[in-house]
């Protein structure tokens, strides 16, 4: 358990400095842990793998959007667990289930098991992106899907470079909100 903490924390710190390869590895490994965690929680109340996958993706998006709230002086596991649990409780409230139906857990459980059986989530992000305002969509497509630099994206979308950064950030937040609404069943 300790080794996950050390390795993932090292990846997280590199990610916070803007290292794309570390960040990809970090999110990839984290999503395996989150999947095992959510499947364990949701099967107990009779919910399926695709709903667990919705939650994995909501949590991954939340971790991305809120990554500036991680304090490097603190261990990573409790931070991840707090976000994962918050999103679980939020999901249960949306779907009118009580948290008392779900087994209680400790922070360590978030790193306990890994699950790489990647199911599809119930929504299509490409379709949801069509609902974003033009500048947000253009900025996310250019920077995040096509992998262009900020300067190239600015030219393509016809906005300033800081405008691209703001639009990517706001766009992902809006997307997260759309996904949360979409998965309200």
């Amino acid at each position: 358990m300790m080794t996950h903490e050390i390795e993932l924390k090292a990846l997280m710190l590199a990610s916070l400095n803007g290292d794309a390869a570390s960040y990809r590895m970090f999110l990839g490994r984290l999503s395996g842990r989150l999947r095992a965690y959510y499947k364990g929680k949701l099967t107990g109340i009779g919910r399926g793998a695709s709903e667990a996958e919705d939650l994995v993706q909501e949590a991954v998006l939340a971790i991305h959007i809120k990554r500036h709230t991680y304090n490097p002086a603190e261990p990573l596991t409790p931070w991840v667990h707090a976000i994962a649990r918050y999103k679980l409780i939020d999901f249960l409230r949306r779907t009118r289930t009580s948290i008392s139906d779900v087994p209680i857990d400790e922070a360590d459980m978030i790193m306990a098991r890994d699950d790489n059986v990647d199911a599809e989530s119930t929504y299509d992000v490409k379709r949801l992106m069509e609902r974003l305002p033009k500048n947000m969509r253009c900025a996310i497509e250019a920077v995040k899907l096509d992998g262009r630099s900020i300067a190239e994206a600015a030219e393509k979308c016809g906005i300033s470079e800081s405008g691209v950064k703001v639009n990517v950030h706001r766009g992902l937040k809006t997307l997260a909100a759309l996904i949360a609404r979409e998965t309200r069943t």
Partner: peptide, 23 residues
């Protein structure tokens, strides 16, 4: 959507993060 696709999207061109912004 596959989670791997989301991970790829988020980890493309990540911005460095200001760690003191909360405080």
């Amino acid at each position: 959507m596959k989670t791997d696709d989301l991970v790829a999207l988020l980890s493309t061109n990540p911005e460095p993060v200001d760690r003191s912004s909360v405080v």
